[in-house]
Design a protein around this nucleic acid. Sequence first.
RNA 1: GUGAUUGUAGCUCAGUUGGUUAGAGCGCCUGACUGUGACUCAGGAGGCCGGGGGUUCGAGUCCCCUCAGUCACCCCA
Length: 424
Amino acid sequence: MASKITAPRGTQDLIPPQSARWQDVEARIRELAHRFGYGEIRTPLFESTDLFVRGVGETTDIVEKEMYTFPDKSERSMTLRPEWTAPVVRAALEHNLFAQGPLRVYYVGPIFRYERPQRGRYRQSHQFGVECFGYAGPEADFEVISLAWELVRSYGIDDAVLNVNSIGDDACRPLFRESLLAHFRPHAAQLSPESQRRLERNPLRVLDSKDERDLALVATAPTIASVLCEDCRAHFSAVTGFLEAAGIPFVLNPQIVRGLDYYTRTVFEITSGALGAQSTVCGGGRYDGLVRSLGGPDVPAVGFALGIERLLMMLDALAREGERPRSGIQAVALGARARATLVPIVAELRRTLAIPTFVDFDERKLLAHLKTADRNGARYALILGDDELTAKTMVLRDLAERSDRSIPLGTGKDVAASLVEMGV
RNA sequence: GUGAUUGUAGCUCAGUUGGUUAGAGCGCCUGACUGUGACUCAGGAGGCCGGGGGUUCGAGUCCCCUCAGUCACCCCA
């Protein structure tokens, strides 16, 4: 087994029938994004390391320890995409998309983070996300949040919770930072080592510490709400107002800080109890400063990223694995002559019918073929043996109804036509 | 990166204080039933016991290392 090559740690193969669920989810995502008027963007799997360092923030965990970074053959430092937002902004700038007014895009695809795998956390995972550029107003925040919520709602996931918060902007966040420093610094020695480190680099992140040594001080820390500037306050209350008007339930959660540096004002998360320690299925917010910090114009933006693995985990927790309806035809040939006759017929069925045609080329008994049909979830078995060859017919067995019908044996087109006529 | 725990057939798992040729259930294949699927019965195939090293007369069982899974911390999707 040691000599056997296995999938790298924290990655997984997606194989049938599991892959069909992913196709369903992705189809729903695309349909939803389409309805909201978002166009798809695809960017390279790897980018210049610098893009993420500048875009995500040097003090974030992603940049400090989670990036898959490697030198290419020209010794340029490259990094496997650990998140989509920075590449999306880079691409929009590169193609000058911001010159044409507001931009709405969505993405679906893998991200890579060098982490120790556990429930809901992998080295390669997949995200669906949207980015809405060009609107500074709360309407855009609402649009993006409601899009994320709509996906969760459409699956009937009832234990999902929408948490929202505002972390202020350039005007008031520095004040919040100062008041946090003033609160924690005198007691810095009592904080956990990790929090002490964060206190200097990014004091906001001390707030989401779960270390027992920090809890007491965190609990008495000043809240952002107390220092929010008038603009931020108005913006945030407009966002929550839209949510209320739309009947989208939410929780005001001052603990939500977000781990990426580029967020401003509105931040939100959708969480679920079905996900173990990684309770966030979707996280996002506003990042008005990012485009500029990546060398672009002053373009406000708001977006989110949603973990597809985690969404599927939530669906699993609902455990409503409905019986999949039978679909398709198992073409069955008994004997070499029947098999030779069947091959072109199968080819024609596959060309004209929308449902799958299954076929087993091995010489097996009818019983074995029917078992295979059962396993394939086929609705019908189309049987051709010596009797049928003589009578110039085929037997169409309805595996759900357990009934047989006879159809004339002809060319592939003839057979396909008969099947269509019979409502197959 | 830290800690805990697990790795035996395709899957779920047994394997006594180390002791000959490693087991079960499910699944798969074949047959009972020249040609009608979810039941039954009987056979069969399929394992360098994750990998490497060590202790021992002898290791699936003990020790070390390594890889991987799981769970948690950290952090996030």
